[in-house]
């Protein structure tokens, strides 16, 4: 129990530290969002008014206090019309209002999260299915045509940066062949899945490449073990041995890989979402950074850091449940 509490405390600390560091970096950069909001041609007096309206004229510690002070509220909103919090039960989470879009950050994040989740889940499926199947097949047909074909493809997957894969997939499958939409999100679920194919492939391919080799190598070790040979000797079908034992083994490393890769996935998502005009967290954060939309940036960073920390926490928890020794460490 104390292990759990300590682990939770560490997680909370990590998120706090990440958000604080971002806040400090953003607020000491020698520039002023007010001028961006007012536009390049706005007159100084008008810029000053906007700065005042946004509270950007206050000292750093006041803004910091206001940001964290307002983050979580237990009271109901004073004025529902200007409230920028999202409420679950009686607890409100308030990330402020976007400077540029003038919408509550929680609302913007709420809108951007489903597309990114869809993309992430699909990419993960691509990674696991493609990686798992390819890895199994490659291992089963070791040194065959299939094996080296797979290995070659994984090498491309690992060596081609996301922006290169994305542009190529878009050009070839969307423009030349016309099988998928060039970009966009779509209104219905059917459209969305159709539109998600290429970005998910872009994002999943890198992971799939990595994962294929993971599975292939695990399998190769596995297939040389006695009990597998015994199973085959007993006349069990080859594919059944492969699927039964392979699949289980293929899913095992996934837990670790997902936890580790979330950060990388985010980096890839930024580029991918930009290329395919996918209205997710990546697009939101790039625009926010370019335009110095502070509240949106802090919101995104808070969300990302929490996700990574939560994923790691769950992985640790899973290990702890499976292996009691971890708890004593």
């Amino acid at each position: 129990m104390s292990w759990l509490l300590r682990r939770l405390a560490v997680s909370a600390f990590t998120v706090w530290a990440v958000v604080t560091a971002t806040f400090v970096v953003f607020n000491v950069l020698p520039e002023d969002p007010a001028r961006v909001i007012a536009g390049p041609q706005a007159r100084p007096a008008d810029v000053a008014r906007i700065r005042e309206q946004l509270g950007l004229d206050r000292p750093l510690h006041v803004r910091y206090g206001r940001f964290f002070g307002g983050l979580i509220s237990l009271r109901p909103p004073a004025d529902p019309a200007t409230d920028s919090a999202v409420r679950i039960g009686g607890v409100g989470l308030d990330l402020g209002v976007s400077y540029l879009r003038r919408r509550p950050v929680t609302e913007l994040l709420g809108k951007a999260l489903p597309p990114t989740l869809l993309l992430g889940v699909l990419a993960l499926i691509v990674q696991v299915v493609v990686g798992g199947v390819a890895g199994c097949l490659a291992a089963a047909r070791r040194n065959g045509l299939l094996d080296w074909g797979t290995v070659a493809l994984t090498l491309i997957g690992i060596s081609a940066p996301t922006f290169l894969t994305g542009l190529l997939l878009q050009h070839f499958f969307a423009r030349t062949l016309g099988w998928f939409p060039l970009d966009g999100y779509g209104a219905t679920w059917g459209e969305r899945l159709h539109a998600a194919a290429l970005p998910a492939a872009t994002l999943g391919l890198f992971g799939a490449a990595y994962y294929t080799r993971l599975v292939r190598d695990e399998m190769l070790v596995l297939l040389r073990q006695d009990w597998v040979r015994t199973a085959w000797a007993k006349g069990l079908p080859r594919w059944r041995v492969l699927v039964r034992h392979a699949l289980r083994n293929a899913l095992m490393p996934l837990v670790t890989v997902v936890g580790l890769e979330l950060g990388g996935l985010v980096g890839g998502a930024i580029v991918t979402e930009k290329i395919f005009r996918w209205p997710g967290i990546g697009s939101l954060s790039v625009d926010a950074i370019v335009e110095r939309d502070g509240p949106v940036v802090f919101g995104v960073v808070l969300l990302l850091a929490s996700t990574v920390v939560a994923a790691n926490f769950l992985v640790d928890l899973a290990y702890a449940v499976l292996d009691p020794r971890v708890r004593r460490r």
Partner: peptide
């Protein structure tokens, strides 16, 4: 190790872009 925890949870690309463009 806490520093490492924080470091591993940081969205660097965002931060690098912010600082890089400044």
């Amino acid at each position: 190790m806490r520093l490492v925890d924080v470091g591993l949870s940081f969205p660097y690309l965002l931060l690098v872009m912010a600082i890089g463009t400044a």
